[in-house]
Amino acid sequence: MKALLSVDNLAIEFATDEGVIRAVDGVSFAIRAGQSLGLVGESGCGKSVTALGLTRLIASPPGRIVSGSVHFDGRDLLQINTRELRAVRGNEISMIFQEPLSALSPLHRIGRQLTEAIGFHHRMSKKAAREYAVSWLQKVGIPDAQSRMDAYPFQLSGGMQQRVMIAMALMLSPKLVIADEPTTALDVTTQAQIFAMIREMMQNQTSLLLITHDMGVVWEMCDRVIVMYASRIVETADIETLFAAPAHPYTRGLMAAIPKLAGGRNHLTDIPGQVPSPLDYPAGCRFQDRCPDVFDRCRTQDPALVTCGKDHLAACFLVYPDKEA
């Protein structure tokens, strides 16, 4: 099946006072129609920058897309002009951000923000647009939707604000939704409701790129997972494979470090050390200093992503076919 979105060798740099940081370094992946892909990693690994880069939402300067291509439904999003891009954003690709309050305009009523988005992409009378927006507020479970149209974002709870964001993201039937930590600021009970709703709304028609640091969330929402570490992809596999047989030592460490429900004091398996600074990545594998299985080759050579199973790739010399060499 043809990919809806295919990202090839994307690299994004930022100029800082201390030097140039390569926040995304040669990232490639694809999403098929109806597929949901999770992009996981810890803060600073480049997952959010990757997502922003896809729709050219990186402020430039200081940011710069150095290389790569982003093919979406037959076009290269990095090459098309701004007008074409604006027709794609919000309409064919929509985004849900972590902080609904900073993503919504504080000065405009909910209704105006929703109908504005409809009017931008579709010819529709004001009245029809309003009715359409109300119907979506109802769909995402906002009680008393008609009167909530006249509310300002700050008058709603965090969960309700995120529901508005989701209505806004899904109401124009996009082909792809990019969600960047959509529930991190919410309580677990609200999170469970939001996920159930996103799943229902998407109904296998829409593709999802979900950016998160939470493996539990990926497990609930995604068919396929990409694990990023220090600006690069270190492993990618379908969800069952990744959880059953993680190949990269980082992925294994990450899974082991998640606190599982326990019955009292319990030392967790941690990953020693810390993520290297993007200004000073070591030569060779970037996980070498924290890796329990490190050996000489890791310190001199860069492991590339290699196939280690069906649709399963990892960037580690342990899974290299020639690892004895």
Binding site: E42, G253, L254, L268, T269, D270, Q274
Partner: peptide, 11 residues
């Protein structure tokens, strides 16, 4: 804190 660091601090 990130998961891997969180586990360190809990320990």
């Amino acid at each position: 804190l990130d998961v891997s660091i969180q586990a360190q601090v809990i320990n």
